[in-house]
Amino acid sequence: MRKNKIGALLMNGSILLAGLGIAHMSMAQNAATPYPKMAPIDQYLMADPSAEIALARSAAPASISRDATVLVLGRKGYETAAQGKNGFVCLVARGWSGPFDWPEFWSPKIRAADCLNPQAARSIVPILVLRAKMAMAGRSKAEMLSALNAAYEHKQLPPIEDGAMDYMMSKSSYLTDEGGHNMPHLMFDTLVKDPKDWGSGAAGSPVMSCPYWFIAENQPPHMKALPPILVFLIPAPTWSDGTPADMHAH
């Protein structure tokens, strides 16, 4: 496994975390976490909602993000700050949108601008919303996972849609403590089982991949209701404002 990869965590999750994504891959199973528990809630909030809206919209080119719905993080989770009309949803993911075994899961520094397309808005954003609600309520990782598992078991969360993807092209995001890894990229949330089907990790391929729930790939056995999401990442040559990105800095 390559030591460093950007993922969505959140938005993620978010990135992805959903990433997430959201966010970033690391050899987490062999590293001590610098953030063993959740920080005080205020450290995850942005003082100026307008700044959070601007950061969220900077995830994608203005031609996309200006007509997107925007969510901002409040004390009880994400709230709608602007209603869009193109089906996209932009938000700023925090560390808890990333894989549950990511060392920076509880980092209060993470600000991952993410703009999800309509398919991801319908099937990934609900995951991010539930994660944020649980985190802001002070729930543990185990409690968050149990809630997600139960939500899928009872069909309270929708299945992952084909074509779900998101833009993470903001110059102003903070994705990880590990140096210059804030590169512009696109993420694709899939149910693909073998990353080789996309050429991920092949010599000369720009495609990277990471399991959505756990970097270590093997999720706990009692979490079998969670869909086996595999996130693919492809670097973009420019930031959302059209300026060139220095791809050699990553």
Rank of each mutant, 00 (worst) to 15 (best):
A56N: 06
P36Y: 02
P40V: 01
L130E: 08
N182C: 03
M46R: 12
T176M: 01
M223D: 11
L20G: 06
A82L: 07
E79W: 00
A132C: 04
W198Q: 11
N4P: 02
F88W: 15
A202V: 13
H185D: 03
S107Q: 04
I15W: 12
I22V: 02
P103A: 06
P244K: 03
E143Y: 01
M223V: 07
S172L: 04
P36W: 08
I160N: 07
D194E: 14
T190P: 00
K76F: 12
M165S: 15
S173H: 04
A8V: 12
A151R: 01
Q83E: 04
H250T: 11
A93L: 02
H250A: 09
Q119C: 08
P118H: 11
L17A: 09
G95C: 10
K196C: 13
G163H: 11
F214I: 09
L91P: 00
K76N: 14
P237K: 02
V92N: 02
W198N: 10
Y44E: 07
D162L: 14
M169F: 05
M165I: 04
L145H: 07
F100R: 11
L191A: 14
K141H: 02
V231T: 15
P237S: 07
V70N: 03
A112D: 08
M46Y: 07
L130V: 10
A137P: 00
K109M: 13
F214W: 06
P49Y: 03
D189Q: 10
I124N: 05
G138D: 10
A32T: 14
Q43C: 06
S97I: 07
E153K: 14
G98I: 15
G19R: 13
L145S: 13
G98S: 15
M46H: 01
K224M: 10
D67T: 00
A54D: 14
A39L: 02
T69W: 05
M27G: 12
A39E: 10
W213H: 06
G13L: 15
E143C: 05
Q156G: 13
M187E: 13
S14C: 08
V129C: 09
A142H: 08
S65H: 00
Y167T: 04
A112R: 04
N218W: 01
A51F: 05
K3D: 10
F232P: 00
P108R: 06
W198M: 15
H250S: 05
I127Q: 15
I6A: 09
D101P: 02
R122D: 10
I110A: 10
E153M: 09
T80L: 03
L17Y: 12
L45C: 07
M223E: 12
P99S: 11
N86P: 04
H181C: 02
T80F: 09
A8L: 13
P220D: 01
S205M: 14
